[in-house]
Design a protein around this nucleic acid. Structure first.
Lengths: 153, 153
DNA sequence: AGTGAAAGGTAGTGAAT
DNA sequence: ATTCACTACCTTTCACT
C-alpha cells in the first residue's frame, strides 16, 4: 500500500465505475500498470467489491432506524442464531455485533412507521433471547464517501 | 421501476464494475437498452453512485465502534454544528442523526483501542454540547450486499 | 421504449526496458 | 516494476422497428 495504491483506492471509493484509463491518468501511471495494481489490490483482499449506492426511497425504504438489542444468555449459540435470524429479514440492512451496553445494533429500513412498528413487534419482540431493545429513528445518515488510510499504529 | 430496473439495480449492487453487456445479458435485454435504463436510473436519482468497498484493516482501521451521543440544547444550531464538526474527523465513517434515547450515532474506525480512547477523550469529550456518550465496540459487521425493493406501502 | 449495426474507445496480454 | 504495442472486446450512438 504505497501512495499510488492509496490514490487508486481513493478513486475507486469515489467512483467505482470510472474507466481504468481515467484512474491511471488521475494517479499518474500507465493504464496497464494501474490495471495490474487494481488486480493485486483485489487479490490481496484490500478491495472487497464494488457496489452501487441506491436511494432508499426508490426501494420503498423511506423510514430507517437503528435498533439496539440486548440478548441473554450471551453465549456463542445465542449470538450466532440471533444474528442468522436477523440476516434473513429483508428489512435488515446491516447488523453490528458489539460489546458495550448493547449486544446488537441493527440498521433497519422499511416503508413506513407502521412497517417499523410491525417489524419490531412481529420480528424482534417475539424472540425469546431478547432481554431489552430500543429504537432510534434515523433522520439523516451521512457517510464519508472516501475513507483515507490512517497513519500506521 | 419495473422488474427489469429492479434486476439492473440488483446487479449493480452486487458488482458495480461488471460490464454493461453482462448486465444486459443477465436481465435479458439488449446492451443499448440496458445502457439507456442505467442512464435513466442515475438521472432519476435511483442510483446515487458506485463505490469500492475496502477492507478496514488495509486502511489501518482495525478497531471500529459505534458511539452514541446525547447533545443539549437540541437546537438546530447545535445539531448542525456538532454534525459538521464530526464530519471533518477522519476517524468518523458514518453519522446517524436520530430521535430516541440518543441524538447521534457515530460509526468510528481507528487503528487501535488506544486510538479509540484518544478519539473519545480528545475529539468527543471536549465538546461542550455533549451531555452523555457511550461506546460500543464492533466485533462483527454484516451488511446485506443487495437491498431488494420492499412492497409499496 | 427496444433493437442491431457501426465507429470509436478500452481492457487486458505479452514482450521489452 | 513500468511501459509500449497489439488484439479482442466493449461502450455508445443512431437509424429503425
Amino acid at each position: 500500500m504505497d501512495d499510488v495504491d492509496s490514490a487508486i483506492v481513493r478513486q475507486l471509493q469515489l467512483d467505482a465505475r470510472q474507466s481504468n484509463r481515467d484512474i491511471a491518468a488521475k494517479v499518474g501511471i500507465a493504464p496497464s500498470t494501474c490495471l495490474e495494481r487494481i488486480r493485486l489490490l483485489r487479490a490481496r483482499g484490500v478491495i472487497l467489491g464494488y457496489h452501487a449506492e441506491i436511494a432508499p426511497a426508490a426501494l420503498n425504504r423511506g423510514v430507517q432506524a437503528i435498533v439496539s438489542a440486548k440478548v441473554r444468555p450471551l453465549s456463542r449459540r445465542v449470538i450466532d442464531s440471533f444474528q442468522a435470524g436477523l440476516a434473513t429479514l429483508p428489512e435488515v440492512e446491516s447488523i453490528y455485533v458489539t460489546a458495550g451496553d448493547d449486544d446488537f445494533l441493527i440498521h433497519v429500513s422499511v416503508q413506513s412507521i407502521d412497517h417499523l412498528h410491525a417489524f419490531l413487534v412481529d420480528r424482534l419482540a417475539v424472540r425469546q433471547e431478547i432481554v431489552t431493545f430500543r429504537s432510534n429513528i434515523i433522520y439523516r445518515h451521512l457517510r464519508d464517501p472516501v475513507l483515507e488510510p490512517l497513519p500506521a499504529p
